[in-house]
Nucleic acid binder design. Structure first.
Length: 327
DNA sequence: AAGGCGGGGTG
DNA sequence: CACCCAGCCTT
C-alpha cells in the first residue's frame, strides 16, 4: 500500500456513507445497484433498490419477469433501457453462465447494459479483481489530482485520466474499498463546484492550483424544443392511456393520446406543463375530453397506479386529474 | 465522434 | 435558470 492509498482508505473508513446496498452485499445486489446508479444520484435510487430487491430477489426471477412489472418497478427512475437490459442480461446469465453473473471484468463488459465502469465496479467490488471502476467522480478527482486539462467528455481525455487511475490501483485485497473510496471522495469532498479541499485526505498529493477549473468538459448541445397537446379521453371514472410504441423516448411506457376522439361532448383544459429531458423539452398543453364509450385502454386512477408505468413527464397531469376532479 | 436516452437535486 | 449525477448504446 502506498501512502496515497493509505490516506484515502483511512479517510474512507471513517467518512463513508452507510449505503444499504453495501450491507450483506452479493454480486446480484451490487449489479442491480450499479445499474440503478448510472447517471443517477445515490439517494434517488435507494428506494427503488430496496423495492426491486424485494420483488426481484435473484437472477431467475429477473430473467422471467413480465415487462409491465419491470417497467412499473423502474417508473420515474429514467433511462428505461437499463431495465430492459437488466432482464436481457439475466437471460444471458441463465443461458450461458449457469444462472450467475460472470466473474471477470472482460466477461461482464460483454453483457447488455454493462460498460467499462459497471463491469469494473462489479468485478472489483464483488469479486476483488484488481481493475478500475472509473465514473464521473473518479474522472473529476484524478483530473484535479494530476491537473489534467483535457476534455473528459472526449475519449482522448478520458483515456489520459484513466491511465493515471490504472497506475494507482492497489492489489485485490484493497481494490473494492479503493474504488469506492475514490467515488465517495468525489461525492462528498472533491465535488464539482466549490470542492471542500480543506477536508480532503489527499490534498497534499493534488497538483492542481485551481480545482474549480477542472475537469474540463465540453458543453452539451442546446436542447430541442417540442410542443405537444395531450388529449386525456375520459369515460366515467376512467382515463384512456396508450402504450408508447415508437421505438425511442419512453418506449414501452404509457402516455396519453395526442389526438382528439371522433366524438366527445365536453372538453376541459388542464394547466400546461413543460418537462425537461437532457436532450429535449416538451412544452405540453393538455385537456380532458369526455367521451360516451370506452375501449380496453380505459382505466381508473387506481388501476393505473397499480399496474401501468407512467413516466414523470406525464404525472403532473395525472395529479391534476386526481386533485381537481377526484376520479 | 456525436447524439439519444430521464429525472431530479442543488446553487 | 444551469449544471451534472457510481454511463451505455447506436449511428
Amino acid at each position: 500500500m502506498t501512502n496515497f492509498q493509505e490516506d484515502l482508505l483511512t479517510w474512507y473508513q471513517k467518512n463513508k456513507r452507510p449505503l444499504l446496498f453495501r450491507q450483506d452485499a452479493n454480486a446480484y445486489k451490487i449489479w442491480i445497484s450499479e445499474i440503478m446508479a448510472q447517471q443517477t444520484r445515490i439517494e434517488a435510487m435507494l428506494p427503488y433498490f430496496e423495492r426491486f430487491i424485494e420483488k426481484v430477489p435473484d437472477i431467475p426471477t429477473l430473467a422471467t419477469i413480465a415487462d409491465e412489472q419491470l417497467n412499473k418497478l423502474w417508473q420515474g427512475l429514467g433511462y428505461y433501457s437499463r431495465a430492459r437490459n437488466l432482464k436481457k442480461c439475466a437471460q444471458v446469465c441463465m443461458e450461458k453462465y449457469d444462472g450467475q453473473l460472470p466473474k471477470t471484468k472482460a466477461e461482464l463488459e460483454q453483457l447488455p447494459g454493462i460498460g467499462p465502469y459497471t463491469a469494473g465496479a462489479i468485478a472489483s467490488i464483488a469479486y476483488h479483481e484488481p481493475v478500475s471502476a472509473i465514473d464521473g467522480n473518479v474522472l473529476r478527482v484524478f483530473s484535479r489530482l494530476y491537473d489534467i486539462h483535457a476534455d473528459i467528455k472526449k475519449s482522448a481525455g478520458k483515456k489520459q485520466v484513466s491511465a493515471k487511475v490504472d497506475e494507482s490501483l492497489p492489489d485485490g485485497q484493497h481494490i473494492s474499498d479503493y474504488n469506492q473510496a475514490l467515488m465517495e471522495l468525489g461525492a462528498l469532498v472533491c465535488i464539482p463546484k466549490k470542492p471542500r479541499c480543506e477536508q480532503c485526505p489527499i490534498r497534499s498529493y493534488c497538483q492542481t492550483e485551481d480545482p474549480s477549473q477542472l475537469p474540463v468538459m465540453s458543453k452539451p448541445k442546446p436542447r430541442r424544443v417540442e410542443h405537444k397537446h395531450l388529449y386525456i379521453w375520459v369515460y366515467q371514472n376512467k382515463l384512456r392511456i396508450v402504450k408508447r410504441k415508437e421505438k425511442g423516448l419512453l418506449y414501452g411506457l404509457y402516455g396519453f393520446d395526442e389526438e382528439k376522439p371522433d366524438r366527445y361532448y365536453k372538453e376541459i383544459p388542464l394547466k400546461p406543463y413543460t418537462h425537461i429531458f437532457s436532450h429535449v423539452e416538451w412544452h405540453m398543453e393538455a385537456s380532458l375530453v369526455f367521451v360516451d364509450r370506452e375501449d380496453e385502454n380505459f382505466h381508473t386512477l387506481a388501476e393505473i397506479d397499480a399496474m401501468y408505468a407512467i413516466p414523470s413527464a406525464f404525472t403532473p397531469f395525472l395529479k391534476q386529474v386526481q386533485s381537481d376532479f377526484m376520479f
